Simulated scan of single mutants.
Amino acid sequence: MNGTVLRSEYLVLIVDDEQFNRMQLRLFIEKEGYQTAEAQNGREALTVVQQLHPDIVLLDAMMPDMDGFECCAQLQSLDCSKYTPVLMITGLEDQESVDRAFAAGAIDYVTKPIHWAVLRQRVKRLIQQSQLQQEQESVNQELKRLATIDGLTQIANRRKFEEYFSQEWRRMAREQKPLSLILCDVDCFKAYNDTYGHRAGDRCLQKVAKAIQSAARRSVDLVARYGGEEFAVVLPNTNAKGATQVAQAMRLAVRMLAIPHSNSQASFYVTLSVGVGTTIPVPGSDFEEMIVAVDRALYQAKLTGRDRVVINHSN
């Protein structure tokens, strides 16, 4: 983190069963410019963390009922505390207690009586480290997302399609449920580019991608750009009838865009040829055969006049 830390943005949760200890810590922490919240035992601390999502927890080790070690261990299981460092405050300095604090998930510890200058630096450092970790995680997630997104159409790319299709193939094989695949191709797209130019071709693909995506409505359905003007749709737990309905909806959605295409052999507008296949995967089998079979159905759609859906019946 660069520049001055705006400490008032950060919330410190103080957990101690002794009111005097909490008051001392609160006065010191607030003097340092942080906001504070308090809990007087481990169970209350778990509730407060889930409600307020503090940036750091100052946790007394020795408390009745649920001590700091157990509380710390339970905090680690909360999704909301993934980036919340725990600083254990303990009167115990023996090797076993220190090891126990770190084993429970504490990031660091300070001993009683508290050395305030040490506490100040450790709170500041742990919050900074947590913020950096969150920023890095955010960057990594964005990089991961970009690696699986097609830059032009902003839908999944071929890499993502292959990962997802493989994953769902294995899942449907385990559950013995139907998996459907749709491959579709923009008809006479080379002629479209030659007639209207590549920039218009790019805009056309963006509109087609949105139209296809609008027809695959479930969160588990994946629409991907498979090639230049070819799109693939993975429909988990979908039978042949359902897949055919989705395919027809996609074809009609593209027709309803009414994008003029004066040199198309299928229509005066941009249209889709679509191949569909459905199978219940055999455990341990390969999905490549299904892609080949659906691609044959797509080729048949083009061969028999374009702007139509052809179902592969070999599966």
Rank of each mutant, 00 (worst) to 15 (best):
M1G: 14
E9A: 15
I14T: 08
D16P: 02
D17A: 14
Q19W: 06
F28H: 03
K31H: 15
K31R: 10
E32R: 14
Y34V: 04
Y34S: 04
Y34L: 07
T36E: 06
T36M: 06
T36W: 02
A37R: 14
E38I: 11
G42S: 00
T47Q: 08
V48N: 06
Q51R: 14
L52P: 02
V57P: 01
M62A: 04
P64C: 12
P64K: 13
D65C: 12
D67S: 04
D67Q: 08
E70D: 02
Q74R: 00
D79E: 14
D79R: 04
S81T: 02
T84C: 00
V86I: 01
L92T: 09
E93I: 09
S97Q: 09
V98M: 12
D99C: 13
R100H: 15
A104C: 01
I107P: 03
T111D: 06
K112C: 04
I114D: 00
H115C: 15
A117K: 15
R120E: 08
V123I: 14
L126V: 02
I127L: 08
Q128L: 13
Q131Y: 02
Q131F: 04
Q131E: 10
L132V: 12
Q133E: 07
E135P: 11
V139D: 14
Q141A: 12
E142G: 09
E142Y: 09
K144A: 14
A147F: 00
D150L: 05
G151V: 03
G151L: 11
T153R: 08
R159I: 01
R159L: 10
F161M: 05
F161K: 03
E163V: 01
F165A: 13
Q167W: 08
E168D: 10
W169P: 00
W169F: 10
R170M: 15
R171T: 04
R174F: 07
E175G: 11
E175Y: 14
Q176L: 09
Q176V: 05
Q176Y: 07
S180T: 07
L183E: 07
V186D: 05
A191Y: 01
T195Y: 07
Y196N: 05
H198M: 15
R199Q: 12
A200M: 10
G201T: 02
G201E: 03
D202P: 04
Q213T: 11
S214D: 14
A215D: 06
R217E: 14
Y226H: 10
Y226A: 04
G227M: 02
E229M: 11
E230Y: 00
A232M: 05
L235Y: 06
N237G: 02
G242Y: 02
Q245E: 13
V246E: 05
V246R: 06
Q248G: 10
A249N: 07
M250Y: 09
M250E: 06
R251P: 09
A253Q: 03
R255K: 13
M256N: 15
M256W: 13
A258F: 01
A258R: 10
P260R: 04
P260H: 03
P260M: 05
H261F: 11
S264I: 10
S267R: 01
F268Y: 12
Y269I: 01
Y269W: 04
V270L: 05
L272F: 06
V274G: 10
V282R: 15
V282T: 15
P283H: 03
P283S: 13
G284D: 05
E289L: 14
E289W: 15
R296S: 07
Y299L: 09
A301R: 00
K302I: 04
D307L: 07
R308S: 04
R308D: 02
N312Y: 11
S314P: 01
